[in-house]
Amino acid sequence: MGIIGSSIKPFNATSYYQGKFVPVSDTDTQGKWAVFFFYPADFTFVCPTELEDLANQYEVLQGLGVEVYAVSTDTHFSHKAWHDSSPAIGKINYHMLGDQNHVLANNFGVLRENSGLADRATFVVDPDGVIQVMEITSEGVGRNAEELVRKIKAAVYVRANPGQVCPAKWEEGAETLAPSIELVGKI
């Protein structure tokens, strides 16, 4: 199943967001960039380090017009309790979606059927609802929010500049490539 280039599927969920329970659906992502940041479970070990790292980049992402949706198969009530009890999670100002019915995890193909938990997975969705970036790591491998920001900047650049692509390690302002037959075998 190819997921890059596919559209996100409809969903409805409840988010713990800035001290409130807020309904969120796929329509809330329309017209803006979105990150769906799946993690296995609240009150665990690698997850809070990743979520705190992402919280530290949230202002940068907001400046790029990106909304963040952290998702686990826990409830929004569990997200609130974790937010209230953990200094790392207490830093989060982005949405924490409850997916206890596994709709989102199934929609994105990251549900571990044998445990009912989501894989450690990240999806970047463009303003048209199309998945442009995905990353899935094993249980013990945490993600890097700075690298996520770099990938989003590249995806935003490519969308705004048709005919250009970003090479490995591309950073904002660096040279891009214009694919053509003249480049074949010359890079």
Rank of each mutant, 00 (worst) to 15 (best):
Y157E: 08
P48Q: 13
D84A: 11
T137C: 01
V156F: 04
I187W: 12
Q132G: 06
A88L: 15
S78R: 09
G19Y: 02
K151M: 13
D42Y: 07
V66S: 05
A178P: 00
V68G: 05
G142N: 10
I152Y: 05
H83F: 13
P87N: 03
G31H: 10
V141M: 04
L117G: 01
Y17W: 15
A13F: 03
Y17F: 15
D74Y: 07
M134I: 09
L183H: 11
A174N: 14
D99T: 03
V103S: 11
V158K: 08
E52V: 09
V130E: 14
Y157G: 00
V35T: 05
F37R: 08
D128A: 15
T27F: 07
E147G: 12
Y157P: 00
L97M: 06
Y16M: 02
A118D: 05
Y58T: 15
E50F: 01
M134L: 15
N107R: 02
T122R: 11
D28A: 06
E147T: 09
A88F: 10
F11P: 06
T29H: 06
V35E: 02
C47G: 00
N101V: 11
V156K: 15
E147M: 10
G185M: 04
I4Q: 06
N144F: 08
P162N: 10
G90I: 09
T176W: 09
H102W: 07
T122Q: 12
E135F: 11
S86I: 02
Q164H: 15
Y157S: 05
Y17H: 15
R112C: 00
P23G: 01
Y17T: 05
V103G: 00
G65K: 11
I187P: 00
G173I: 04
A121E: 03
I181L: 14
T14M: 07
E52S: 13
C166W: 01
G109Y: 06
E52K: 14
T27W: 02
T137R: 11
H95F: 12
G163D: 12
V133L: 13
T176L: 10
D84H: 08
S86L: 09
V141C: 00
S85M: 12
C47I: 03
D84Q: 09
K151G: 01
H79T: 01
Q164M: 11
I4N: 04
F45Q: 02
N56L: 14
Y17S: 05
S138Y: 02
G63Q: 12
A155R: 05
A34M: 03
S25E: 01
A154K: 00
P167R: 12
V22P: 05
V35S: 04
G19V: 03
I181P: 10
P167F: 10
N56M: 13
D28I: 04
H83P: 00
D42F: 07
S15V: 13
G173W: 02
K186W: 11
V68F: 03
L54W: 05
Q57W: 02
N12F: 03
K32S: 14
R143D: 01
G140N: 12
I131Y: 11
A34S: 15
L148K: 07
S115P: 03
L104C: 08
G2S: 14
A145P: 00
V71H: 03
E139F: 14
L97D: 03
A160Y: 05
D26K: 06
F77G: 06
V22N: 05
R159D: 04
K80S: 08
V130R: 13
M134E: 14
M1F: 09
A105G: 10
F77W: 13
A13I: 01
D26S: 14
G98L: 07
Q30C: 01
G65Y: 13
A154L: 05
T75D: 03
E182H: 10
